[in-house]
Amino acid sequence: MRIRELGIDGAFLVEPKVFPDSRGQFLEVFKQPAFTEAVGHPLTVAQVNCSVSVLGTIRGLHAIHLPGQARYVSCPSGAIRDIVVDIRQGSPTYGRHVVAELSEDNRHALYLAEGLAHGFAALTEQATVFYLCSSTWSPETSFEVNPLDPDLDLPWPRDREPVLSDKDRAAPSLKEAERLGILPSYADCLARYAELATPDGASR
Rank of each mutant, 00 (worst) to 15 (best):
P155N: 06
S142L: 04
G201K: 11
K167Y: 06
L180W: 01
T136V: 13
D82F: 06
G68C: 11
E144Q: 13
Q47F: 10
D21P: 06
Q126Y: 14
A11W: 09
R81S: 08
A70P: 04
Y111F: 15
T124G: 06
D151G: 03
P147Y: 03
T198R: 14
S103I: 03
W156P: 07
R204M: 09
E178C: 00
F12V: 02
Q89M: 15
A70M: 04
R179E: 12
G68E: 02
G24S: 09
S138V: 05
G40Q: 09
A177H: 00
Y72V: 07
A109V: 04
P150M: 01
E104T: 00
S103Q: 05
A109E: 06
I3A: 11
R160K: 13
Y193E: 11
H108Y: 11
V14N: 04
Q126E: 15
V39I: 14
A171V: 07
I182D: 08
L61C: 01
V14R: 01
F12N: 11
D153L: 04
T198I: 04
A202Q: 10
A127W: 03
A79L: 03
A170H: 07
W137Q: 10
A38Y: 02
K175Y: 00
S185R: 12
G181K: 05
L116T: 06
F30N: 04
V163I: 15
P150D: 03
Y131H: 08
L102H: 08
A194Q: 15
V73E: 02
E144N: 11
V54N: 14
L61I: 09
R96I: 01
I83N: 08
R23C: 09
T136N: 13
Y111W: 10
W156H: 04
A79T: 07
D200I: 07
I182K: 13
L112W: 02
A177R: 00
P162D: 00
T57P: 01
W137F: 15
L180Y: 05
T136D: 04
G10E: 06
E176W: 00
L116Q: 04
L123A: 12
T136G: 15
A113C: 11
H65Y: 10
Q69F: 03
A202L: 02
E140C: 01
D82R: 11
D149G: 00
P184W: 11
S91G: 13
T141L: 10
S77C: 11
I64C: 14
S165K: 06
L43G: 03
A197T: 02
Y94V: 02
R96T: 15
L132V: 00
S22H: 12
T36K: 14
A11D: 04
I8D: 03
P199W: 07
F130Y: 14
T136H: 13
E195R: 15
I3M: 05
D9N: 13
P162T: 02
V99M: 05
V18Y: 00
R59S: 09
S74C: 14
G181S: 03
E178H: 08
P155C: 06
A117R: 04
K31W: 13
R81E: 11
R4I: 07
L66M: 14
H108F: 12
Y186G: 08
H108K: 12
G56N: 09
